[in-house]
């Protein structure tokens, strides 16, 4: 990355601007801004983080430092639909392994991977607060509970392109 090639990055500028128009660019607005960008762009790219740094007058390392602390602010490309399977003990006790097996069989991906068509990414997360209806997962923001192999298969199909 030669230093002279500081590119225009019109796309990044536009998306960061929209986030800042909505939330502001004082430091306490950083998480809302990063969250907005994640919703729009699925992840925080290098150029987006640089643009955020410039607008917040921080170093890009600080932006990355903050993003990398939080589970839901990815800095690597992600698929359109993010499947977050709860891995905490109660889900584990109630058949989480079957659910994961079905997902992996259907999508042919492992944890922290994205399908070739970029439609799904899969991650394991800590307790999502659905233990009374375990096992559970989130697809994007929506919780799905009382999962078993059949139900998981049926739910996943709804998200097929």
């Amino acid at each position: 990355m030669p230093e002279s090639s500081i590119t225009e990055n019109r796309f990044e500028k536009e998306i960061v601007s929209r986030a800042i128009d909505q939330f502001g660019c004082d430091r306490e607005n950083l998480l809302p801004v990063l969250g907005f960008i994640r919703d729009e762009h699925r992840y925080l790219s290098i150029e987006i983080m640089r643009e955020v740094a410039s607008r917040f007058n921080m170093s890009s390392a600080e932006v990355y430092g903050v993003a990398s602390f939080y589970h839901f602010l990815p800095t690597e490309p992600r698929g359109k639909n993010l499947i977050s399977v709860c891995k905490t003990i109660v889900c584990d006790m109630h058949g989480r392994a079957d659910v994961v097996a079905v997902i992996q069989d259907m999508l042919k991906i492992n944890f922290d991977q994205t399908t070739a068509d970029s439609n799904f990414s899969l991650q394991a997360v800590n307790c999502i607060g659905c233990c009374d209806e375990a096992p559970a997962m989130l697809i994007n923001d929506k919780p799905y509970t009382k999962l078993d192999a059949t139900r998981t298969r049926e739910i996943l199909k709804r998200y097929y392109p």
Binding site: T88, I89, V90, N126, C127, G129, C130, C131, D132
Partner: peptide, 11 residues
């Protein structure tokens, strides 16, 4: 920020 495993009452 109800994150303690096994807690869902705040929800």
């Amino acid at each position: 920020d109800e994150g303690e495993p096994g807690t869902f009452k705040d929800k």
